[in-house]
């Protein structure tokens, strides 16, 4: 090996495939994290004109969590271009129609609007469940850390463990539980 090629590292420019579990994650917060990997902002060789972005595979996009009342409050605007063609779709309606759409739009909006944005979006794969195609799965080498811990639901904890958990008090006999 010649002295010039001693430090040549082709793998620096390789595309890495990351996986991100959207379960119980805020799509607008996680969009900023996903954006970083898509654009290659996590690499010290980053340059806006350097094609160093990675591929991100999002799973469980059906299980995203919006904060507060956002499912009912947030509206997605679309205009067909014809008079009277404006529509406002609420977040829960959009999510029922296409469970991948909210996270996709969140990532799209997190990036700056330039010519590169649509090409960068091509490197984002979103799947509503845990099932991903084999040809995608075999490329994945890294997992992006989730922003929030996924809480365990009370009805997913086994019955006997719930019974064993120490109680502060018992409800009175005549107390009506809602």
């Amino acid at each position: 090996m010649s002295a010039v090629k001693r430090a040549q590292q082709w793998a620096t420019f390789a595309r890495t495939w990351h996986i991100f579990d959207c379960k119980w994650q805020d799509p607008y917060e996680s969009a900023n994290v996903i954006k970083k990997y898509l654009m290659g902002l996590h690499k010290p060789i980053y340059h806006p004109m350097n094609d160093c972005g990675d591929v991100v595979v999002c799973i469980n996009s059906r299980e995203i969590a919006l904060r507060g009342d956002e499912w009912r409050q947030r509206a997605y605007f679309h205009h067909t271009g014809y008079p009277g063609g404006a529509t406002w779709t609420l977040a829960w309606e959009l999510h029922n129609k296409d469970p991948t759409m909210i996270i996709k739009k969140a990532v799209y909006r997190a990036m700056k609007g330039n010519l590169q944005r649509r090409h960068t979006m091509e490197r984002l794969f979103i799947y509503p469940g845990e099932v991903i195609p084999e040809e995608v799965k075999q490329n994945i080498t890294n997992q992006i850390r989730q922003i929030r811990l996924v809480p365990t639901r009370l009805d997913h904890i086994p019955e006997e463990e719930v019974q064993k958990y120490p109680k502060v008090m018992d409800y009175p006999e005549d107390y009506v539980l809602k």
Partner: peptide
């Protein structure tokens, strides 16, 4: 801005 981006990327590693 570019230097800042690169430094924070390297720091994150």
């Amino acid at each position: 801005d570019l230097w800042n981006t690169r430094i924070s990327a390297a720091c994150e590693q």
